[in-house]
Design a protein around this nucleic acid. Sequence first.
DNA 1: ATTACCCTGTGACAATTATCATACTTTTAA
DNA 2: TTAAAAGTATGATAATTGTCACAGGGTAAT
Lengths: 231, 231
Amino acid sequence: MNPENSKCSCEQCKLKSLFFSHVTVNELTDICEIKEERSYSKGELIIKEGEKINDFLYMKEGLVKLSKTSFDGKDQIISFSKPFDFVSLLSIFSSENFRYSVTAVEDSVVCILDLEIVKNYARENALFTMDLMIRVSEVTDKIILDNLEIKRKHLKGRVAHVLLYFSEYIYNSDEFDLPVSRREIAEYIGMTTENVIRTLSEFRKDKIIKIFGKDILIVNKKRLEGISEFG
Amino acid sequence: MNPENSKCSCEQCKLKSLFFSHVTVNELTDICEIKEERSYSKGELIIKEGEKINDFLYMKEGLVKLSKTSFDGKDQIISFSKPFDFVSLLSIFSSENFRYSVTAVEDSVVCILDLEIVKNYARENALFTMDLMIRVSEVTDKIILDNLEIKRKHLKGRVAHVLLYFSEYIYNSDEFDLPVSRREIAEYIGMTTENVIRTLSEFRKDKIIKIFGKDILIVNKKRLEGISEFG
DNA sequence: ATTACCCTGTGACAATTATCATACTTTTAA
DNA sequence: TTAAAAGTATGATAATTGTCACAGGGTAAT
C-alpha cells in the first residue's frame, strides 16, 4: 500500500466480505484506489430521483431513507436502509436514472465507485456478480415483504410496526431516538401526520410507550407486538 | 438435434434471447435437454409459498399472480406477471424457500430448469449472470413502483389504475376479459371486495366503462386516466 | 431579537372505507 | 341434477381515516 492511498482501508472494511469476497487482492487494491468515501449529515440528500446513474454506492455507516416524490409534490418513503442493505443497488442495473431519492436520516458514510468499473468486474467475474445478485435479491425482497406487511394493517398496527422496526431491526433497543419526524413516519406507512401523532399519543396514554420528543421508550413490548400483529 | 429431444425447441423460443443471449449453442442444447415444460390451467397453483426452491422457472405463455397468505388466512396479491416478467426470480437467490405463491390466472406454460444447474452456469458465465441480474432488477423495480403508485391513491383511483393496467399493460386493448375476480382485485389494491364492485358499478353508471360479467370495455379512457391520476 | 417555518399536539367534523345483511346468479361438487 | 359454494351486486350503518383549524415550542435565517 503506497502512501497516497493510506486512507484506503478496504482490506479492513467489515463490509468487504459482503460482496467483495470473490475479488482478488489485486483487484481489491484497484477498487480501493478509485473509491471515494463521502460523509453526509442528517437530512442531506445523497441521491436525487431522476439523476443519471454514474456511481455504484454502498453504505458504510448511518441510516438513509429511500423516497419518491409524486407529481403533486408529496413524498412517499419506500424503505429505510442501514449498512448491509445496499441502497444503490435497486435501479442501477435496470435503469439509466435513479428512480428514487436517497436521503441521510442519520449522519452517514457512503463509499462510491465508478459504476462502469464495477460493471466491468461484473462482466468478467461471475462469482462477484452472483454475490451482487444475491444482495439485490435480498434487499428488494425485504422491501416488498415489509410493504406487504404494512399494507395489511390499520393505522395503529402500522405505527406499532414502525416502532418495532426501529426498536428491533435498526437499534436493537427498547429505547431509541426516532431518526425521523412524525411526517416521515406518515409518508412511510401511508397515513397522515396527524394520525401518526394521535396514535403515538394514544400509545403513551395507554402506557405502551413513553415519549420524550424524539426519544421513544417501549414500555409494554408484548402489547405493542399484539397491536402490530392484530390491531 | 436427436430424436429424443425433438420437443426441444429452445433455439426457436422467443424468450431465448432474453436471458440466454450469453449462453453458447452447446450449453443451450444441454439446458434444453434438462428443461421441462409444464402447462397449468387457470386457477392452478404453480408454486406454493414455503416450498423448497429446487427449480428455476420462467413463463412462456399466460398470466400468473404472485400472492402471500397472512396468518389469518387472508391473501394479498403482490403483482401479476406475464412472460418476460420472470416470476420465479424473486426469492431464488436470497432464500431457501419460496416466499410467495404463484397461481395461474390464465392458462399458462412454464419452463422449468433445475436450479442447481442454472446456478452452476451463473457461477461460470458472468454475462449470463449479469443478464439475470438485470431481469431481477427490472421485475422487482416494477413491483415496487407499482405498489407505491397504488398506495398513494384512493379507492376509485386504485380501481381505475387496475383497469388501465390490464387494458394497457396486459392486453393492449380497450376491451378485455378480466382474468381475475373482484375479490382478487381487492386483494391486489388492498380494499374490500364490496368496494371494488361498487366502484366498478359507479364507473358503469358514469358511462366510463361497460361491464358484461368479466368482460370490460373502456368507453371513456381519458376520464379513467384522470381518475387514476387524481381521483 | 424577531420573523418565519417546521414539528408536535389536540379537537371537531367531514370523507372515505369497512362491515353486515340480503339477494341473485354462476360455478363447482356430490 | 341438485345442492353447496363462490361470485356479483346493492343498501344501511359503523368504523376508520382525513381535513381543517388552531396553538405552542423549537430552530434557522435575517
